[in-house]
Amino acid sequence: MELNLDFPKLARLAQLSFSQEEESALRKDLMRIADFAREVSELPDEANSLRAEGICLLREDRVGSCLSPCDILAAAPAHEKGMITVPSVMEDSHEDPS
C-alpha cells in the first residue's frame, strides 16, 4: 500500500537529518515496515475491551542522595563556571535599550 509520508517533517520531529541518498533508501524501508506493522490493524474486536491493569509505579517524593555536580559536569561535553554550556537560545539583542 502507498504510504503518504511527509519525510522532511518526520525527520525534523525525530531531530535527524539525512542525505538524499539516505532518504530514498529509508523511504523504501519505511514503506515495507509500515506495511508489516499494519498487520496489527486486523486485531479481533475482543482486543478493544482489554484494559491495562492499573499499577502505580511512582515512588515517594522524598529527598535522597544524588550524583554530585562535579560528576555530572565531568560527563558533559562542554561546561563553564559549574554550568553545562549550550549554543545561545535567544539571539543577542543589538538594540540600545535607551
Binding site: L13, F18, L26, L30, I33, A34, A37, V40
Partner: peptide
C-alpha cells in the same frame, strides 16, 4: 538506530497513533 527512531516517531505521530 536512525531507522528505528524515525519509525518510532512515525508510529507516535498524531495521524498514525491510533492506527499503529
Amino acid at each position: 538506530v536512525k531507522r528505528r527512531i524515525l519509525l518510532g516517531t512515525f508510529f507516535l505521530s498524531r495521524d498514525r497513533y491510533d492506527e499503529y
